[in-house]
């Protein structure tokens, strides 16, 4: 692992970006496959093959192209591009804040994609997606602030190589981040705007009107996004790469476990609880840190 780490360190910024663009969908798709398999086992089913998400994506690309209006595809392509862009920035070791804001921008394009079609389900889903963004965004910014307070830099490359374990300084921030990760991964208590299964009051919410290759692009964007988010988990344990990768995977399994054990919350509780958690865990952690320094 350390040798891989060194190789990565020797790469230039574009090589790292390229590696992310090529490898992230593979890792993300594989994770999605593991997610489906593990979820199925939790429910006492066999579940699909681990490679099923890839089969699904290929199949979706072969489907007939049905577009409700021309802005729909435009928004989704932008969503994908900005997700890739923010992920590439992150893995190239650039500014963490820039990564977070471009990810938020990507989310905004996704919402616009939901709003530009006529379906009321899609509109409701888009409205809920905005509420979710408002719910999780403060916590993500707190992650960046907390890391800056400890390491003195917003640079991902600096944070990742920081010798001291960040998690010891930022336990509250990490807990808050875990909480909103459930929203970002679209897992069960918070899968309001679109759930993995269409068994929801608003059908499939935001993605109701998307089909074929556009839907595949959304899926792929989510793979990129998931890898990026797990990368952020990695940062908390950057002092030990092995431990960090392990924790990132454990986090993912933990989210699946949470998914299996909760009913869907309503938006009021989602919003209230995530802000409360942000305030209690995140903000207090930041305040304590600033008093210590």
């Amino acid at each position: 692992m350390n040798t891989i780490h060194e190789i990565v360190l020797n790469w230039g910024i574009f090589e790292r970006m390229l590696a992310f663009v090529l490898l992230a969908p593979l890792v993300g798709g594989l994770l999605a496959g593991i997610d489906r398999k593990v979820s199925a086992r939790f429910q006492g089913r066999y579940g699909p093959p681990v490679l099923q998400p890839f089969y699904d994506a290929f199949k979706l690309f072969q489907k007939e192209k049905i577009i409700v209006n021309k802005f729909q595809d435009f928004n989704i392509v932008l969503f994908l591009l900005f997700t890739i862009f923010s992920g590439a920035l992150f893995f190239a070791g650039a500014d963490l804040l820039l990564t977070i804001f471009s990810l938020a921008l990507a989310g905004t394009f996704f919402v616009l994609g939901g709003f530009c079609v006529g379906s009321p389900y899609s509109h409701l889903g888009a409205e809920r997606e905005i509420i979710q963004q408002v719910a999780y965004e403060p916590m993500i910014i707190l992650v960046a602030i907390g890391m800056y307070q400890v390491t003195g830099s917003f640079k991902v490359s600096v944070i990742a190589q920081y010798e001291l374990p960040l998690i010891l300084y930022l336990p509250g921030v990490f807990a808050g981040f875990l909480y909103i990760l459930t929203i970002k991964f679209r897992k069960s208590p918070f899968d309001l705007s679109m759930s993995h299964h269409a068994h929801q009051e608003i059908v499939r919410g935001l993605t109701t009107e998307f089909s074929g290759s556009t839907l595949a692009l959304i899926e792929i964007a989510h793979w990129y996004e998931n890898v990026l988010l797990l990368g952020m988990v990695y940062l908390f344990f950057g002092f030990n790469p092995w431990l960090a990768v392990f924790v990132a995977l454990a986090t993912y399994l933990f989210e699946i476990f949470i998914d299996m054990n909760y009913a869907r919350f309503k938006w009021q509780l989602t919003f209230g609880s995530s802000w409360l958690f942000t305030a209690v865990a995140g903000v207090s952690n930041i305040i304590v840190l600033s008093l210590m320094r």
């Binding site: 979820s39 429910q43 006492g44 759930s195 299964h197 068994h199 054990n261 909760y262 009913a263 869907r264």
Partner: peptide, 16 residues
Amino acid sequence: AADAFGFESLFMQALR
């Protein structure tokens, strides 16, 4: 009902 409020694992258990 479990399926309707988004609790998939409960749904599977009940049907079993």
